[in-house]
Nucleic acid binder design. Structure first.
Length: 279
DNA sequence: AGTATCTCCTGCGTGC
DNA sequence: TGCACGCAGGAGATAC
């Protein structure tokens, strides 16, 4: 489900409910999601302390208290929502965090359990094994055409897989990879090492533009994405290629096509993204 | 080291 | 109505 804009939307939506509050009780109905949930550590180190920071890094959400960070990943199907404690847990509501003051709780629901909840016992979480290999934030100043071109050199994999690699740049998932390549006029199968500097510049601009637009629209709701307040996103109304196979390209009228790359569906316009890679 | 494939899990749509 | 199958927004693990 969630790519960077969705996690950013959740982060912004949750901030007013969490910052300055404490988590006074934790109910875990499952011992593990992708990995075991360190319930004991969380109860010992996280409970009872004021939440002083809420941060996103790539697709990770970090909730900071004195002495460490609770790290969330939503995987493919994860949701975080704030609701009243009187509401009974639903299917796949794996963890409840009771918030104080007030009568609310934060619920972590994840149907497919590809998500994660971990504890990082450090003041600075960047050294954590999951975070340290991550590439630059796509909306940050480190992510430039020159940087991407440098990373792209002498590599043969398809550019779509390249930009979905979190070590290259974080937060670009399957939807926004297709959308960004369309905007940049680059065929998804183009060999990474064949990208010119100007193509890399265009691609970086496209990724930034697409992600920024998606954040502005509150993310993309294809099936059931909701922000922390239960509201859907609206970027799906703007999608140019994702999920539009067989429909006409809005720029050139050609039929949007689909192919599979790295076990994932990819969408592109054969008119605007020619296989030669020059568009 | 770089690349491609497999894997975790549930639910939904499609076709027979 | 039932069943098999393929696919779904992620990304670590594994096998070349």
């Amino acid at each position: 489900m969630p790519e960077l804009p969705e996690v950013e939307t959740v982060c912004r939506g949750l901030a007013p409910h969490l910052l300055g509050n404490k988590v006074t009780k934790m109910v875990a109905r499952r011992a593990s999601l992708r990995w075991p949930i360190p319930i004991k550590e969380l109860k010992q180190s996280f409970l009872g302390k004021e939440i002083v920071a809420l941060r996103r890094r790539g697709k990770y959400l970090l909730m900071g208290v004195e002495g460490g960070w609770a790290l969330f990943h939503l995987g493919m199907s994860g949701h975080l929502r704030v609701e009243e404690r009187t509401i009974k847990p639903r299917k796949h509501d794996h963890v409840d965090l009771h918030l104080s003051p007030g009568e609310d709780l934060l619920r972590f629901n994840d149907t497919r359990r590809f998500g994660a909840l971990l504890w990082i016992p450090e003041a600075e979480p960047e050294r954590h094994v999951l975070l340290s290999p991550l590439g630059p934030e796509p909306l940050g100043e480190m992510f430039t055409g020159r940087y991407l071109h440098g990373r792209a050199k002498a590599r043969r994999l398809a550019v779509k897989n390249f930009i979905m690699d979190g070590r290259v740049v974080v937060g670009v998932g399957n939807i926004y990879a297709s959308e960004s390549l369309y905007m940049a006029g680059i065929h998804p199968e183009t060999a990474t090492g064949a990208l010119s500097l100007s193509q890399c510049v265009r691609l970086v601009e496209a990724i930034r533009e697409i992600l920024a637009q998606a954040i502005e629209k509150g993310g993309t709701t294809l099936r059931d994405f909701r922000n922390g307040e239960g509201k859907p996103g609206y970027f799906q109304q703007v999608l140019a290629v994702y999920g539009r196979q067989g429909e006409p390209c809005r720029q050139c009228g050609a039929e949007i096509q689909t192919l599979r790359l790295g076990q994932r569906s990819s969408f592109f316009c054969p008119g605007c993204q020619p296989a030669s890679g020059h568009g």
